[in-house]
Design a binder for these strands. Structure first.
Lengths: 339, 339
DNA sequence: CTGTTAGCGCATTCAA
DNA sequence: TTGAATGCGCTAACAG
């Protein structure tokens, strides 16, 4: 029969007014200790659950925040969602994870609809939605606070959390150079993602520091997915003078590279070094020796949620990356490959 | 300035009553064609977005459904969420994807809270939440319609969608037997999941039909994750008489097996056949020749959502599986391994 | 086919 | 420290 006790029922049972129950619910001060106890007892007796809908309608905050994303990597989104959820859980908030299509011309309208319909208190954007002009405009127009995870550029008005993609790619490239490689191929990420650009920048920088010229034929476009890694690896290895190392802009594509190498009977890491980026669990699965970059995805998401909730001044928080070297440290440099 | 037009504003602008606007909003019949057009024009002029909160409070349906899950496979949940979202999108519903912890003793309370607070119209449960008694009791107590994806047992009161796990495992085992294998190891899934049991049943059945006795030392416990696949593979391959084929209950564990095989210099599939289950993209990534079972995950999710929405009589829908054989068909049977 | 009225469950003015 | 009244934006009876 029960299953629908409302605030008035609680008030009656506790012998107080509705307003007092509301105060207890919202953790207000100025509530007598005894009164609070009575109310809490009544709430648990009745298994009272405050209706979010009613709270939204009557109040100013909904206790809901949205995570808007359009990322096709299951690993990545899994970690991002996890980080946001953990923080929301801790704060008693509801997270609305909402996928969108950044190529949709109506995405601005979609986001306006989402925010207005659900009354979310804030929004978290993950790459590449972070750099979708229509979305940013919609959120600013609606005056909703939002935080961006790994955005493409700084934004004076809103906070963001990110890692230093360029530096990480630089580190990896330098690592490969230090192993003795002189012919290092690079597979770019999806053009939609700002990180793709930054990682390329880091690759170039690493080569330059190593005194190695950037060769255009060693640069291949990819899309952060396995198949594009396969295609790019095929093209690179078909070159008259193929690279001795391939640095893919994420682990999915690195997996594609490894797959091609295996198919052609090329021993990794002895005949070909393969490096990835992101340290998804995929890295370990595909090849125990895959060297990769640890991107702290759930930590980024958690930090972003935290920034959104504290609602302080605009902050840009950088979290550290880490080079994960598995096995290939002991690899002898490919002397024979020196040009 | 705008960004907050309500139903009354629309009514005023269209020169009709709020009720009429409400009718248009809810796609009611008995609205004059002209009137409807005027209202729609007013709505789009004002960029009107009906507040879900208000609709929930006033009406009987919320237009929201919840997907409750506790599955640690990013691939799997990605597909399940995708399927549910697609169907919801098509129907104009909001999906609340909510992770839970099935080992939490208070999970019943958590689910009651979720349903009561959000007023969801229905719930989709994915394995292993499908078999969590506390959750089922909570939903029945609240009288919320729900549909289960891959439940452990039939339930007279609620609909479900599933595949025939036992038959699929049987097919795979038979396939291995037909390849000539007589020593086939099996790695079970997580004990929480009903599918783990069914797949083991299928394995036994396949062996029996092939006239092969089940050996306890060829059965290893796993947890559907990469690491447990590694551990189980290690144990199996350390046996005095190791299996010539290993059938892992899902692709993540199969990836672990492949990783171990590679680490030990065991050629797959020539010296060891490895079979997986689920056909996550991981299968192709790890090893192009991994034979696996295609579980139609997003289709299951979509079908489940559909069943929930049509709200008809209890139905139990089985979707077909498919044996995905990659490369190992041409593998010569391991004659030398016959006992 | 259309309009009027009365709440849904809660937070939020104001008073006491 | 507490309580009474008002309304958030919408739908659901009931009229017309």
């Amino acid at each position: 029969m029960s299953g629908r006790a409302n605030i008035r029922d609680v008030a009656d049972r506790a012998g107080v007014s509705v307003k007092t129950v509301s105060r207890v619910l919202n953790d207000h001060k100025y509530v007598g200790a005894l009164t609070r106890q009575k109310v809490q007892a009544a709430m648990s007796d009745l298994d009272f659950r405050p209706s979010v809908a009613a709270r939204i309608l009557a109040g100013t905050k909904s206790g809901q925040i949205a995570l808007i994303y359009d990322n096709h990597s299951p690993y990545y989104m899994n970690r991002i969602q996890l980080g946001c959820w953990q923080r929301c859980q801790a704060e008693g908030l509801r997270l609305l994870a909402q996928p969108v299509d950044v190529t949709d011309l109506d995405i601005g309208s979609a986001v306006r609809g989402l925010v207005r319909e659900t009354h979310v208190d804030g929004v978290i954007l993950s790459s590449p939605v972070t750099d979708c002009r229509a979305v940013l405009e919609a959120l600013e127009y609606l005056d909703v606070p939002f935080v961006r995870i790994s955005p493409g550029c700084n934004h004076a008005l809103t906070s963001s959390v990110f890692m230093d993609d360029a530096q990480a790619a630089d580190d990896m490239t330098t690592h490969l150079v230090n192993l003795g490689h002189r012919r290092i191929g690079f597979i770019q990420g999806h053009a939609n993602h700002a990180a793709s650009h930054d990682r390329l920048v880091g690759y170039r920088r690493g080569l330059e520091r190593g005194g190695i010229a950037v060769r255009d034929d060693y640069l291949r476009a990819g899309a952060f997915d396995f198949d594009s890694g396969v295609a790019a690896a095929g093209a690179l290895l078909d070159l008259p003078s193929p690279p001795t190392a391939i640095f893919a802009s994420n682990d999915d594509m690195a997996a594609g590279v490894l797959s091609v190498a295996h198919g052609r009977g090329i021993a990794v890491p002895h005949a070909l070094s393969v490096a990835g980026f992101d340290d998804t669990t995929l890295a370990r699965m595909v090849w125990p020796t895959l060297t990769t970059i640890h991107q702290p995805m759930s930590e980024l998401a958690e930090a972003a949620t935290g920034l959104l909730l504290e609602g302080g001044p605009t902050q840009h928080v950088r979290l550290p990356h880490q080079l994960i070297i598995r096995g290939s440290t002991s690899r002898p440099p490919p002397i024979k490959d020196l040009q």
